[in-house]
Design a protein around this nucleic acid. Structure first.
Length: 358
RNA sequence: GCUGGGGUGGCGGAGUGGACAAUCGCAUUUCUCUGUAAAAGAAAUGUCCGAAAGGGCUACAUAGGUUCGAAUCCUGUCCCCAGCA
């Protein structure tokens, strides 16, 4: 059995658990009271984004990011490796990956280094409950040689991150969890190597990194299996950026117990709401093949629907408002539509995780 | 009643003799969204045939006319708007 409890300064969370993405310290459209009411146990913030945007003095003043956000739940900080890679690839930011770290060129004659050590150091300042090491993202199109290089760099950075982490948390009673990230793309021997080497370095858990989707959006679970098989008992296994409800179910069966993803919130903002195919919460059966549906909120055909979006949900939207009213809010472009839909989807995910835990 | 302006696809609004089944915006429908550049993006939207390329038909108030060719020019009619009576 993998780790079952996530203990943190304000309490403990039974796993598996889903941590929605509050990348910049907020879940878009929601405040943390809303998030709390969806029974979401924790959120994930992004180190790279906050490193760029957050006034460093804020953390000295508040002590940690959770207090700043007024969020009692757990907080995981992602290292930023994924964002940096994808933003450099899309040309959003200028930068290069070197052994030293990520070299950024934010302007003329300006050079910034976002190193593994800096990532850890900043995460310690954030005071999050799980710290994720900076990894070198393996591009899904990588050749074996390129994938191997990214694994080697990921391991190099992982060792340095661990060292930095030990240095900064030495003598502390309460330390955050430290998560290593497995790279290697579709090359299973590299995934295995990466997993084993990370375990040797010693972490509290490992993350399934990279981009495991094919062009049709289907997940290849082979690397997740390799990671799970080569990880000791008691480790957290984090499906980074996973995902769709059925993919989470599958990953839990492979031993994964922590997830984060933008899907519930982004899809909610785009008018897509997840609903269990059941009359009530008690009757939800996630073992069924089609255990959920997707409700498209802004269709004209919903305009006269006075029923709730779901009877197997107890969120603010489903308890108080009709499909027709939600459609109206989407149609007029009012942000309340996005708020209610985000709340609903987060509750869907928290119910899903409750069901997976039993 | 007179004078002037105008009537374009579900709506708004371009076009003002050939490249117009008609730019664009909105709307509608469908699809996409996976460690958040995302309140975002893509496609379709007269009709018929075709898997497609493509082709046929019908359309720019209405009835005629000019022209090889008209949403675009001319005439009648109907309707709308502004000013004057």
């Amino acid at each position: 059995m993998k780790q079952k409890l996530f203990r943190y300064k304000n309490g403990e969370i039974s796993l598996p658990a889903f941590f929605p993405d509050a990348t910049r310290g907020v879940i878009k459209m929601l405040d943390f009271k809303d998030v709390e009411e969806t029974k979401t146990p924790g959120v994930l913030v992004n180190t790279f984004h906050l490193w760029q945007k957050l006034d460093k003095k804020v953390l000295e003043k508040y002590g940690n990011i959770g207090k700043f956000m007024s969020w009692e739940g757990a907080v995981i900080s992602d290292s930023g490796g994924f964002q940096i890679m994808s933003q450099i690839k899309k040309g959003i930011i200028k930068g290069k990956i070197k052994d030293e770290g990520v070299i950024l060129y934010p302007g003329k004659n300006k050079r910034l280094v976002f190193s593994p050590e800096e990532s850890i150091c900043f995460q310690i300042k954030l005071g999050t409950d799980m710290v994720i090491v900076l990894d070198d993202f393996t591009d899904p199109k990588s050749s074996y040689k390129e994938a191997k290089e990214s694994v080697e760099r990921t391991l190099l950075w992982a060792r340095r991150s661990k060292e930095e982490f030990e240095k900064l948390t030495k003598g502390r009673k309460e330390k955050p969890y430290l998560l290593g990230v497995v790279q290697g793309g579709e090359y299973l021997d590299l995934r295995k190597l990466c997993t084993k080497e990370l375990v040797k370095i010693g972490f509290d858990g490992l993350g399934w990194g990279g981009w495991p989707f094919d062009e049709k959006g289907k997940i290849n679970f082979a690397s997740a299996e390799v990671i799970s098989e080569n990880t000791p008992k008691g480790y957290f296994l984090h499906g980074l950026g996973i995902g769709k409800p059925e993919d989470i179910v599958k990953c839990v069966s492979l031993g994964f117990n922590i997830f984060d993803c933008v899907i519930p919130t982004r899809d909610g903002r785009h008018g897509r709401l997840f609903t269990f195919n059941a009359d009530s919460i008690n009757k939800i059966d996630i073992k069924k093949k089609n255990f959920y549906s997707v409700f498209t909120a802004d269709k004209d055909s919903n305009s006269l629907e006075d029923s709730p979006v779901s009877t197997s949900c107890d969120c603010l939207l489903c308890k108080k408002y009709s499909k027709g009213y939600l459609r109206h809010l989407f149609k007029i472009g009012d942000v309340t539509a996005m708020r209610l839909a985000s709340i609903h989807n987060l509750r869907f995910y928290s119910i899903l995780m409750e069901k997976l835990g039993t």
